[in-house]
Amino acid sequence: MRRWLLRRTAQAAVTLAIAITLLFVLMRAAPGDPLSRLQGDRLLSREEIASLRERYGLDQPLLTQFGAFVGGLARGDLGVSIEYGRPVTSLLAERLPATLQLGGAVILLNFTLGLWLGVRQAVRRGSREDRWLTVASLGGYATPSFWLGLVLAWLVGVKWGLLPPAGHSDPLLDSGAGFLERTVDLLRHLALPVLTLSAVTIATTMRHQRNAMLDVLRDPFMLTARAKGLSERAVTWRHAWRNALFPVVTLFGLWLPILVTGSVFVEAVFAWPGLGSLAAAAVGHRDYPLLMGAALLTAVLVVAASLLTDLVYALLDPRVRLS
């Protein structure tokens, strides 16, 4: 186990190094730079642009810039955002909690409700419930998140006034508000973005789980389990479900980074202060330091998710050895 962990960590470090180098080069190879945009938009003179270029080190050769970035990275310093004028690490740290709340809630909903519904569909294959859930999941899968978000925000937030149509928390909430009050406030704000993002992801989880369960339910060992006199609940959840989890765990590994940085539209529609919109704006602004920081975080998440997926495989299946 230790050797496996060491090997995977070394692999992860190499992957990250390659990813960072590629990102750095590709970003600078892309047309446009952060300061020419300002020159066009905010009427800065050439002298001012030159001064800013020097301030941000953009006047240095590419290799020097890369060296400065790597040196900073080694010290835990990702530089200062050109657009925000603040340290990138602070910006990422400020946005990460909201991102984890949104992504975490969606994953939680997926791996509870989504899995449960998928299993129910498989167990009741061909029933009216299965057919309805299939239609619902396909509907959810086919619904664009940004459209659903707009409709929910207007209908639930504005028209019915049941939930806040946007934002992360109520700014008017008393600073002395207790934990419970704050949690309720957060959940109220979280509800619509989570519902919007989950509509697509739960549908996918349900379809994957249903199909995996159907495959497992056809395996001979299921007959054995039933022949041993096990209850249908035990057969389903203890024997079948555990074996049907593999494709869904893979899905989790793929989703984790996407949920962290990929929910740009939903963050925009609900004014959710997450990393997705921050990263998207950084791309548009060519805010190199912020973009590198966000990309680095995503790369770390991809690698971490892959590592976690392997660990979960091993936990689920004793035949998988971490060596």
Binding site: L150, A153, V158, P165, A166, A268, A271, P273, S277, A281
Partner: peptide, 20 residues
């Protein structure tokens, strides 16, 4: 005075119309 940030115009209008 609170300056509440919502980059998306639709989100801003929704906050206004909902009384937030």
């Amino acid at each position: 005075v609170l300056f509440r940030v919502a980059a998306d115009p639709d989100a801003r209008i929704n906050l206004l119309l909902s009384g937030e």
